[in-house]
């Protein structure tokens, strides 16, 4: 697998505790770095602010996902099981669906039927929202992916156990091989490692 050509991905540095990582993050944030991250086995309370990470905009997408579910359920039920659209003067839609309401026990099929459709509308709102959460999240965080340069570091495996890491990518405009290393040393990092990636 390994080729002779390597590309510097960035620095990986380890910290002793949540607290050290937290305070280190504040300093890296204040230096104006953009392409860097902290890695921890669990979400650290307040680290978003310490890193200057903005609040996720995922809920907006989920709102529209949910609304899509509501409308899907409403259209599906009203087109196939009511005369709602003909009553509204849009009978051609029901013709497209090529269906007619199933009349059970002579119950009405017009406008007054709509409340009976609410449970399914509710359920599909939740269902579509949940799928939007799942796929929206994966799109936001760029996963799944097969590999990542950080996984070339053996030490990095500890991130999912009890290791607290910070990675600063070489792509960051403020990155410099010497300057960034001395910054990491100054803010209390241990085991600073230059992570290289196969080209």
């Amino acid at each position: 697998m390994s080729t002779t050509l390597k590309r510097v991905h960035g620095y990986l540095a380890e910290f002793d505790s949540v607290k050290d990582l937290y305070h280190a993050a504040e300093q890296v944030r204040d230096q104006g770095f953009q392409r860097w991250d902290c890695h921890s086995p669990f979400p650290i309370h307040g680290l978003d602010a310490a890193m200057g990470v903005k609040r996720s905009t995922l809920p907006w997408f989920v709102f529209f996902g949910g609304m899509a579910g509501t409308s899907t359920a409403f259209i599906m039920q009203s087109l196939t099981q009511s005369t709602f659209w003909s009553d509204m003067g849009m009978g051609f839609l029901e013709k497209i669906a090529e269906t007619y309401p199933t009349v059970v026990q002579a119950k009405p099929t017009g406008f007054v039927t709509l409340p009976a459709f609410f449970p399914v509308m509710f359920e599909l709102t939740i269902l579509f929202s949940a799928f939007t959460v799942l796929f929206g999240l994966l799109a936001f965080i760029g996963l799944p992916r097969w590999n990542h340069p950080l996984f070339t570091s053996k030490r990095f495996e500890k991130f999912s156990d009890d290791g607290f890491f910070m990675s600063i990518e070489a792509r960051d405009p403020k990155f410099s091989q010497e300057g960034t290393k001395s910054l990491l040393e100054k803010i209390g990092a241990k085991n600073i490692e230059l992570v290289e990636d196969d080209i």
């Binding site: 991250d37 902290c38 890695h39 680290l47 996720s56 590999n147």
Partner: peptide, 10 residues
């Protein structure tokens, strides 16, 4: 491919 990144945790 989870790597515990805080930008992901957020």
């Amino acid at each position: 491919g989870w790597r515990g990144a805080n930008r992901h945790w957020s």
